[in-house]
Design a protein around this nucleic acid. Sequence first.
DNA 1: TGACTATGTGTCATAGACTGACACAATGAC
DNA 2: GTCATTGTGTCAGTCTATGACACATAGTCA
Lengths: 211, 211
Amino acid sequence: MRINLCDMPGGTLRERQRAETRTLILDAALTLFDVNGYEHTTVEDIADAVGISSRTFFRYFDSKTALLFDHGPSRSSDLHVAKNSEMLAAIVARPAAETISEALMAVLRERLGQMFDSDGLKLRQLRVILAEPALRVQAQDSFHERRPDLAKAFALRLGQHPDDLAPRVLAAAFTEAIWIILERWAADGAAAERLPDLIDEAFAAVSAGLG
Amino acid sequence: MRINLCDMPGGTLRERQRAETRTLILDAALTLFDVNGYEHTTVEDIADAVGISSRTFFRYFDSKTALLFDHGPSRSSDLHVAKNSEMLAAIVARPAAETISEALMAVLRERLGQMFDSDGLKLRQLRVILAEPALRVQAQDSFHERRPDLAKAFALRLGQHPDDLAPRVLAAAFTEAIWIILERWAADGAAAERLPDLIDEAFAAVSAGLG
DNA sequence: TGACTATGTGTCATAGACTGACACAATGAC
DNA sequence: GTCATTGTGTCAGTCTATGACACATAGTCA
């Protein structure tokens, strides 16, 4: 059952096994979702596919939906956290002369493609989400999770408090914009080179709309 | 069990009974949520409180969360639909010289207070939602439901397609703004006369932030 | 290497949201 | 009053999720 873990770097055998099992679950789940649809795939199906009990599944993922919002194989356990703060730091670090829209756009152009490119994971998740209308709503939640952080970054640029209205509203607006971009990108076949164009287009529209 | 239905206008006895049961369920549920919290109130608790089986509960409400997003006693069954389209029509009908922000603000000043004032229902729902962090996320969904409509109204004003970016982003931004307004309003004690002030304040901030 | 501890796993039992099927009761129409 | 329509309770069952316990595996220390 355990496959060659030797080529994976990292801590103890346990940690490597855990990471391996996690990716096995995630991969099996996304495949099953793809074939049978999210609703018609039970947690037991997933567990069976990996050869674990469904009880064990819940020791790896808090819920079935967590599979869709998981940030990668968590090779090093908080890699994505680092990535996230990097992104926020990048937003804050953009030249003060730039508007928030310009700053965010620049950061997205640099990093959004990378995010969806590194492995196919995020794209596969995105596709499942887009396929099931009920999930699109929940997906907003996943973005929503990051909104406070985004609002914080905006607040820093604006010299305001993160709970103030402007940062939060801007975060909501741009979160929606990113969502639309990803939607269209996936619908267009998810070609990596399309992403920058879509970002440009979207942000131009937003600027025009908000101005 | 059935209480004096005679003073309620409306169609057949069956319809009146149904409407009555519906409000009984809704009222009992919100009371229980208030006392024991949303999570610790089971559907069976609610059903017991009304004197129906939990199976019957699900014949009135699609889900437990539906209780929080239900639009009133549905005396006349699609009253809220009418209200909703009225609101959208009002947005479209505002003078063309107004910006979208101004138009929406004017409509909200006219109608938002009314919406939360007519009966205590929406405020009670709002309080439950705000009390339980997990629900705040779902609440976004409920607003989200109406976003396409809002986007449509905006699109009409902008002379754009409802699926275009600008209307959707604007809808997201203003939905968030409304949400923030309601949050603060509830936190402030939900005094009816505070609402217009909060609306003014919020929209001023948004305009300043977006400009 | 062998014992000892920590951690992971399966099994079992259970709660809680929801759904389908069926029998029975109440309503509305004639 | 008869008869079709519709509402309700009961029962059984699915699926997500969690707690308890026993057993197995990995990490540690002598």
